[in-house]
């Protein structure tokens, strides 16, 4: 019993360590987008509202997972190094200074792929592996 518990804990720790390392996050644009690749700084600048210009031309239309979603928190930590509440404060500054409207929320990765595929100006993110041929992966965040 004791050793089983130990094994379970060991397995859990292994999972916690290995899962994020295996998974990561893919930043995606439509297959018809002019953007071909983005640096982490490009992604961070867009999602912290510092620029609205899409690399490759035009104005970016951002998509986000819902508030409190683990994938969203992981994305912001990986792309910007900021916590969910810090990002919320950043966007409240942008919104209430009339400078930008926040990203459009979609409820999961499948909806994200669908929304991004439909708009050449769209940018979104999904767990690695969730993208399909309708979108291009322009950045990978570990």
């Amino acid at each position: 019993m004791k050793s089983m518990l130990k094994n379970t804990i060991a397995a859990l720790i292994l999972m916690m360590v290995s899962v994020p390392a295996l998974a990561g996050i893919d930043v995606i644009v439509s297959a018809h987008s002019n953007a071909s690749s983005m640096s982490k700084d490009d992604v961070s600048a867009l999602y912290l509202g510092r620029t609205q210009n899409l690399p490759g031309g035009g104005k970016a239309k951002l998509y986000d997972l819902p508030d409190g979603n683990a994938g969203r928190d992981a994305f912001y930590t990986a792309a910007t190094g900021k916590s969910a509440s810090q990002v919320k404060a950043v966007w409240s500054r942008l919104v209430f200074s009339g400078r930008a409207v926040p990203p459009t929320e979609v409820h999961d990765d499948a909806a994200m792929v669908k929304a991004v595929a439909a708009d050449p100006q769209a940018v979104g993110y999904v767990a690695s592996g969730a993208a399909n041929g309708s979108v291009k992966v322009v950045a990978h965040l570990p």
Binding site: S92, F96, S97
Partner: peptide
């Protein structure tokens, strides 16, 4: 328009946006 005199002029009254 908001007069941008200060660092936080645009969101001076938005408590949440300020530390």
């Amino acid at each position: 328009l908001g007069w941008p005199a200060y660092l936080v002029s645009d969101f001076r009254y938005v408590g949440y946006a300020n530390n």
